[in-house]
Design a protein around this nucleic acid. Structure first.
Length: 972
RNA sequence: GCCCAGAUGGUGGAAUCGGUAGACACGCAGGACUUAAAAUCCUGUGGCUUCACGGCUGUGCGGGUUCAAGUCCCGCUCUGGGUACCA
């Protein structure tokens, strides 16, 4: 029986629009919180809605997670696959400062555009759960979490966060003796003393314990942006956004005590399915280092200097001590005759910004204090130096210098001509330090003859038994600065009662919403923008003026998706108990330390206070590689022209980006254009003779939209359109263009943003989805190129044709039973498609689909039994076309409701195999044998074979290896 | 400097346990259909060599293990990413 329905050829535009409408109307992808089905939570890192719109790199990860989500639905899971926007941030604020337009408006517009672009691609997001970090209904819960941090302290004994009220109880009954907390060192007090403190004093002490606390810290201050930046927002001493100068400044700041969680953040890595490189990056960031603290007594006076070292074994190699310029003992120990030079050095170091210090790693500087410490074992006097290679913020701000075995100490000692005693065998200490942790100890008294590892152990024992110090662990991870001097962020819900920071009542958080301000800039007195707001007060007291950093909202958004409209709680217990942690998290590796570390920190804290049932938020993490754009770094335009003297000139000229902008806006005169080229590009003249001039300059990518850089018609057109100015200099004949390209980030700046809308328009969303997957492994970085997109599009057309009568383009499938060969093709594809999704190997499954269609086409197979299963397999990748074909097959329900085909290995069973016969590893010919044939028999038949005899040339084989179903190798 | 990842045709890439290297696709060349174009289909396509059958060679470089290495081991080179006076 034949089913015949009139149907024209594959009109993807109509099909896709129809199904997108259908899904939205039917709420096909709505996830249920009350479900008996097993859950699956697939999350994408939500985007920051920038003005440039979505480019083809954004959807890469979204497509992958969408495929997995759809696959899981077919397999009977209740899938949570949401999307939202991380919309607080600097670009909107910068734009607001420039234009006066409220960032909320810009953000709204950008979100609208993002949504349209996302909708075009046909994602199976549950949009009823959308979250926006800038929405007051959302950020009141970000503020709420901040208050929980403010009202908690970290108890090292129970190894978790506990309510600050319990700590106050303890203070009132026994004081702080015996309290082991993650905090700065504190003065000890008993209950009576605690009660005698004024409220202000008590609050000051409590701040030292709170997980959200105020403290004086060195911050990265960016005067240009008028704000403080986190370490990971600073690159090479410049702000990551905008590239402005960043300097070090001491400020009172809100901080979060992430350092309390360092060990748990480290341990937790062993329990999650992330790539080694991301785990390693987090480990490095936490920077756990185990060593020993050690006290050096001063030769004169009471004080001692405490150092931290990971190499206590090299104690006999110490030839001096170095203090950070900021070290508290510097002023006390400096002798009178050294005072002038020390003061001078300390002043210079303080004024040197972090950037200068970094730029200057190779310059060695330091000064002698005149003071001496005493070696704890030999009694030798050790000169005490000051050097800015020692950081005040790490360890104790002082090091025992072992120049023979530490490269920095070595450089310092060489420069100032200090002794370099060797205590570990190996290397050539006359040339460079020997830093390796291996070798035998020498010149080291009780450590002599020991290997480094054993020596470290013995040295620690000795140091501890002599009471000189103890084993200690240091982390590189610092507490996170949480306050920003910005407008466009969550207001910190704190008010100041007589200078004491107090928490806003939880039920009043809906009142702490971003106030209107006249300008988005700091005040004239340098206060943050919120200081401009009228009545920015609470209970008559002033409110905090700083706002939260960009990572605040993104540290917990995955929880809000579970219960997005809950007005009473940030997430209900039922919702979080059902959905649990994220099964699959996909996003860019640029968040490997910042976002992922903070989100883990908040999750652990929320677990401590009993609000979430898990310790790690992201069970499996996949980093999609960046899709890079092509940057025309150098554009060479050469042309020949005759000058007044009838000399042939070959010019090579092109244009920089700013010049391009000026030409585009037509605010540059011919005269300026010429001058510009002379001024900025004279150094790019690569060759001058009396006949040849070469200039090399940049040109925007947009002229090469085709991606074909041999075709310069677009550029020629542009040159003609940009005004006569260009034509005046370029009026020669024999125009020739060439371009040097490199790959890099897609950004507005490089004119290389490829909009997925254009691809959808030209080829359809299904082609875009499949093509992005077909490009290569999800994790790999790859340059965008439309080369090959035709192949994917052709594949979809071929698949469409399987369901249609070629001659008259009518829908036509057969109800006949499938043949063995057809079933084999199908089940091979079921197996591959299933395995590939489980392994996130999407590129190979696309090729498996291609193979399947090619083979079915060869067999002219149009049987329902085969084709219906096939489109279910294909539907996660190309949902629109599959929905359409599914409907044409006579189904009334969405293909999304269908069940994933079950792989039956019986169809793949082979009873014979065409063995490659190789001689010494070189394959010569093939022979067919039954798979159940005895291997000895196979061997005998191979030897007996005529061709084998030819290759043996009369010799007897030494050995014959037969691997069942694989290969035969004859060793001659 | 340190840490991590990678290197396969003209191109993107495939090869699950060590078992026929180059699947699939692009591009290119040739052909069919067409008045023509588009679309579609067929054939070929790592290099060298041969009229051909075939032979030799081939996964960044140099060694090694193995009957057999893109895959495992040792030593390099280069590329991409992260990170840095962290004692």
């Amino acid at each position: 029986m034949l089913l015949i329905i009139n149907m024209a050829s594959y009109h993807f535009n109509t099909i896709e629009k129809n199904w997108q409408k259908f899904w939205a109307e039917q709420q096909t992808f709505k996830a249920e919180n009350n479900s008996k089905l097993p859950k699956y939570y697939a999350l994408d890192m939500f985007p920051y809605p920038s003005g440039a719109g979505l480019h083809v790199g954004h959807p890469l990860g979204y497509i992958a997670s969408d495929i997995v989500s759809r696959y899981k639905r077919h397999n009977g899971y209740n899938v949570l696959h949401p999307m939202g926007y991380d919309a607080f941030g600097l670009p909107a604020e910068q734009y607001a400062i420039q234009t006066g337009q409220h960032p909320a408006i810009t953000t709204e517009e950008n979100i609208k555009r993002y949504r349209e672009q996302l909708d075009n691609i046909g994602f199976s997001f549950d949009w009823s759960r959308e979250v926006r970090t800038t929405n007051p209904d959302y950020y009141r819960w970000t503020q709420w979490i901040f208050l929980q941090l403010f009202n908690a302290w970290y108890n090292k004994q129970s190894d978790k966060a506990e309510p600050i009220s319990e700590l106050i109880n303890t203070f009132e009954t026994i004081g702080n003796k015996g309290v082991k907390a993650a905090c700065e060192e504190t003065v000890l007090f008993d209950a009576a003393q605690w009660k005698a403190f004024s409220e202000k004093e008590q609050q000051k002490i409590l701040l030292n314990y709170r997980l959200a606390f105020l403290s004086e810290t060195m911050v990265n201050w960016c005067p240009e942006l008028g704000t403080v930046l986190a370490n990971d927002e600073v690159k090479d001493g410049l702000s990551e956004r905008g590239g402005y100068l960043v300097e070090r400044k001491l400020m009172t700041q809100w901080s979060l005590r992430i350092s309390a969680y360092a060990e748990r953040l480290l341990q937790g890595l062993d329990t999650i399915d992330w790539t080694d490189s991301i785990k390693e990056a987090q480990r490095n960031w936490i920077g756990k280092s185990e060593g020993t603290s050690l006290h050096f007594a001063l030769a004169k006076g009471e004080n001692s200097i405490e150092v931290f070292t990971t190499r206590p074994d090299t104690i006999f190699g110490v030839s001096f001590l170095t203090l950070a310029p900021e070290h508290e003992l510097v002023a006390k120990i400096t002798t009178d005759d050294c005072k002038a030079s020390v003061d001078n050095y300390v002043t210079i170091s303080k004024n040197r910004s972090e950037r200068d210090r970094m730029a200057d790693v190779k310059t060695i500087s330091g000064v002698f204090t005149g003071a001496y410490a005493v070696h704890p074992f030999t009694g030798t006097p050790l000169p005490i130096w000051i050097g800015d290679y020692v950081l005040a913020g790490y360890g104790t701000g002082a090091v025992m210098a072992v120049p023979a075995h530490d490269s920095r100490d070595y450089a310092f000692a060489k420069y100032f001509n200090l002794p370099i005693p060797q205590v570990v065998e190996g290397g050539n200490v006359a040339v460079e330090s020997y830093d390796a942790k291996e070798g035998k100890l020498i010149n080291s008294d009780f450590l002599n003859g020991l290997e480094v590892k054993a020596a470290i152990k013995k040295a620690i024992e000795k140091i501890e038994s002599d009471g000189l110090g103890s084993g200690k662990t240091n982390n590189r991870l610092r507490n996170a600065v949480f306050g920003r001097q910005r407008y466009w962020g969550e207001p910190i819900p704190i008010y100041y009662k007589d200078g004491i920071p107090c928490a806003v009542d939880e039920q009043d958080l809906d009142k702490i919403i971003l106030p209107e301000v006249d300008k988005f800039l700091p005040t004239e007195t340098g206060e943050p923008p919120l200081a401009r707001a009228a009545n920015w007060t609470y209970k008559g007291y002033p409110l905090e003026n700083t706002t939260m950093p960009g990572w605040a909202g993104s540290s917990w958004y995955y929880l809000r998706y579970m219960d997005p409209h809950n007005a009473a709680e940030f997430v209900s217990k039922e919702a979080v108990d059902y959905w649990q942690n994220i099964d699959l998290y996909i996003g860019g590796s640029e968040h490997s330390v910042g976002h992922l570390l903070y989100a883990r920190f908040w999750c652990k804290f929320l677990k401590d206070i009993g609000k979430v049932p898990f310790e790690e938020p992201f069970k499996k993490l996949v980093n999609q590689g960046m899709i890079q754009g092509t940057i025309c770094s150098t554009f060479i335009y050469s042309y020949q022209v005759k000058d007044n003297f009838e000399t042939q000139h070959l010019f090579k000229v092109a244009f920089s980006f700013d010049l391009h902008e000026k030409i585009k806006n037509k605010n540059i005169s011919n005269h300026d254009l010429l001058n510009h080229i002379k001024q900025y590009h004279s150094n790019s003249i690569v060759e001058i003779s009396n006949v040849i001039f070469h200039h090399e300059v940049n040109v925007p990518f947009e002229f090469f939209a085709s991606g074909n850089f041999d075709d310069f018609t677009g550029l020629s057109k542009w040159l003609n359109n940009t005004g006569n100015s260009v034509n005046q200099i370029i009026s020669g004949e024999n125009l020739k263009f060439s371009v040097k390209t490199e790959t890099g980030k897609m950004s507005k700046r490089w004119y290389n943003v490829v909009n997925p809308d254009d691809i959808c328009q030209q080829y359809g969303a299904d082609t875009l989805r499949m093509y992005e997957m077909f490009l290569g492994p999800l994790q790999d970085a790859k340059p965008w190129s439309t080369q090959g997109i035709e192949g994917v599009h052709r594949f979809l057309k071929k698949a469409w044709r399987l369901f249609h009568n070629n001659a008259n383009e009518d829908f036509e499938i057969s109800e006949d039973a499938a043949t063995k060969a057809e079933l084999k093709i199908l089940h091979k594809t079921i197996k591959k498609a299933t395995e590939d999704i489980e392994n996130f190997s999407f590129n190979t499954s696309v090729s498996a689909f291609m193979v399947c269609v090619n083979e079915l086409q060869d067999l002219k197979c149009n049987k329902r039994e085969i084709l219906e299963s096939f489109i279910i397999l294909l539907s996660p990748y190309a949902p629109h076309i599959c929905e359409e074909l599914w409907k044409l097959c006579g189904h009334t329900e969405s293909i999304e409701k269908s069940t994933w085909p079950v792989f039956n290995p019986d169809y793949l069973i082979e009873n014979e195999f065409n063995y490659p016969i190789s001689f010494n590893g070189k394959v010569r010919f093939n022979l067919n044998f039954a798979l159940d044939m005895d291997l000895k028999e196979v061997e005998a038949q191979v030897i007996a074979n005529e061709q084998t005899q030819q290759y043996l040339e009369g010799k007897t084989p030494k050995k014959v290896i037969v691997v069942k179903g694989r290969i035969v190798n004859v060793v001659v």
